[in-house]
């Protein structure tokens, strides 16, 4: 069991992708015939690299350019990435449905405009402090924390969990 502090620290290697990575590349439609996270995990990023899921260790971090996750609303996209063991996605920007899906299911996603990393670089992310370090290059970055509304969802562990907490409070 991770301690409260560790929950906000993510350490892993960078896997780098380009701009406008769309949901057909994250999880092609042919794999959408299931909602089982473990099956979806095997096909994460399969539109670009069929073997992606075999290469990652828990906590590894996807690094991408602008508009990551554009296209379909399929929640299978962030779900497959999370279930494959990816600790976080760092991109210059995210497509809006991917963004809300990731928040709703509790996959950490961070927008850092000028972040530089190569595949294989060792990264360290502190979600609470808003710090991102590329240990391989020595460069450090910071990012603003989420607005309160989203913080509440993230802290509850997802949207459904937050609704449950609130309905319990109301009882």
């Amino acid at each position: 069991m991770k301690s409260e502090k560790d929950k906000f620290i993510i350490k892993g290697r960078a896997f780098k992708f380009g701009e406008n990575v769309d949901t057909d590349q994250i999880i092609p439609a042919r794999y959408l015939d299931t909602s089982d996270p473990d099956v979806l995990a095997c096909h994460a990023m399969a539109g670009i690299d069929e073997d992606f899921s075999k290469k990652i260790n828990p906590g590894d971090i996807i690094v991408a350019g602008r508009n990551f996750g554009c296209g379909s609303s399929r929640e299978h996209a962030p779900l497959s990435i999370k279930a494959a063991g990816i600790g976080a996605v760092v991109a210059q920007s995210f497509a809006r449905i991917f963004f809300r899906n990731a928040i709703n299911i509790g996959l950490p996603i961070i927008e850092v405009k000028d972040f530089k990393a190569q595949s294989g670089d060792e990264l360290e992310l502190d979600l609470k402090k808003g710090k991102l370090k590329n240990k391989s290059s020595g460069e450090k970055y910071s990012f603003p924390s989420f607005p309160g509304f989203l913080q509440n969802i993230i802290q509850a562990g997802g949207l459904m969990e937050r609704i449950r907490e609130e309905s319990k409070k109301g009882e």
């Binding site: 929640e75 449905i97 709703n104 609704i163």
Partner: peptide, 16 residues
């Protein structure tokens, strides 16, 4: 939106 948004809307009638 996503599937979780829909599940939440089924539960509460609302979306964020």
């Amino acid at each position: 939106m996503g599937s979780t948004d829909v599940a939440a809307a089924w539960m509460t009638g609302k979306a964020w």
